[in-house]
Design a protein around this nucleic acid. Structure first.
Lengths: 255, 255
DNA sequence: GAGTGGTCTAGACCACAGA
DNA sequence: CTGTGGTCTAGACCACTCG
């Protein structure tokens, strides 16, 4: 039985990180130092770090070094609970994301950029818009402490949202869903589609991950009674930072 | 601007696969041949294939060669629709999985192994079982044509399920949820938790993916009116083969 | 045994960050 | 400029499949 070096060294370092020998945010040995101290080639040492990078345990920055990720646990996103009244209270005025991050003992933060733009094709299709029609776009960058953990971009049809409070920085109490209800578009159903893909270059830069790290892409659609989609939000988040859950009632099978 | 070789060659091959130059299941050039024909080193040629492998487009088998994946599109799993009556009819007697695969024009298949075992710790906890208590275990291996696309293992508490039809190969019309309802444990809510992780060695072998390919792990829990979990099913499926969705009603915010 | 993919090495050079 | 991670090369050897 031949013992492979990369998984063995990765396991050793993984254990040290989890035991706190290298605490979150701290610097790890330079690749060339690891290579020498472990008696392996440069490429092999790099491969060891690549394994841990793909697991979300460490982060490498060219020209700087390799560091333990500041967030080791996973943030839990409850897809359904966030729209139930009791959960809204736990969240307070700050929304579901804030509660999810706070539950990990970290401080949530977000910045929002508002614009009028042509949405990407799949979004335009869901909203039932002309391919050239503009939508209200709210692009949010969300942080836990100083780390960007999610990029979420919401799209609203212009005929519904232009000139309303949805175009202000603060969407007010109850958020976009309450404003849309006031405007005559109450949502009765949510649909979320989920996929895993590689990040775009811009997303990788924002999220501070490598181009071959993976992200969840969650497409959230809010539907009115008539089935019209009045809100689409695309959430992009590193798979290493999040776990997800959904809960819903089912029909009783006849006994 | 320096042009990197791996992404460029990967893009060329990706295009050829998608255009059908290399159809699903066909053999690709051997690594050493690609290396020579493209004028790159062996390692670089391998890296090109690694990129496509991680995307799920190709499969490599040691000692045999490299092949285009037999399944290029994604199978869509609708988490909620599968428990709604109308969807049950589309599925016919065969269940939601069969419908999902058939929708792609492929032939579904499954084999089930039934046993009494101690469930893994997290499952025992959800079911509220002693750490040594046995449960009824139904381990299913699910195929689309000849490809294994999902491994799903269901656990039922022994006091509920031992000696019932749930211990037979065929759980009968309406499946396990109908049988549990008849036994006095109708489920009213489903909770699914979702994560992405690397496969175990056994899972990688079954699913025919490499040890560093990733899988969804979906933990499906069926809850009765009182909140008791009477069914836990752990689904393991390659992220490259599946996309997921959920749909549910929401509370109306006050206007 | 011949042919295949997988791992590792030693070393060159590139791209980027920071003093 | 120095030091860092990232890419690529040429070649050795290992692990596995098939005839």
């Amino acid at each position: 039985m031949k013992e492979n070096k990369v998984p063995r060294l990765a396991a050793e370092l993984r254990a040290k990180i989890q035991q706190g020998v290298y605490p979150p945010g701290s610097a790890l040995p330079k690749v060339r130092d690891l290579s020498e101290s472990e008696g392996v080639s440069y490429q092999t040492a790099r491969d060891v770090y690549e394994v841990l990078r793909d697991e979300g345990l460490i982060i490498s920055r060219r020209g700087e070094g390799t560091f333990v990720s500041p967030i080791l646990g996973k943030i839990h996103r409850d897809g359904t609970g966030r729209y139930i009244k009791s959960a809204r209270e736990e969240a307070g005025a700050r929304g579901a994301f804030a509660a999810e991050v706070a539950r990990l003992g970290m401080t949530p933060g977000a910045t929002t950029e508002i614009s009028r733009e042509r949405p990407p094709k799949p979004v335009a299709q869901i909203l039932g818009l002309h391919h050239a029609a503009k939508a209200l776009v709210r692009a949010r960058v969300m942080r836990a402490d100083a780390t960007v953990v999610q990029v979420a971009t919401s799209y609203f049809p212009g005929d519904v949202a232009f000139g309303t409070q949805l175009e202000q920085q603060d969407t007010g109490d109850g958020g976009s869903k309450s404003r849309l209800a006031e405007l005559g578009y109450p949502q009765v159903r949510i649909r979320e589609s989920l996929d895993v893909r590689t990040p775009s270059k811009a997303e990788a830069a924002l999220l501070g991950i490598s181009a071959d790290g993976l992200v969840y892409e969650i497409t959230h659609v809010g539907l009115t009674e008539t089935g019209r989609a009045v809100e689409v939000c695309v959430h992009v988040m590193p798979i290493t930072l999040w776990s997800l859950s959904y809960e819903w009632p089912i029909d009783q099978p006849a006994v």
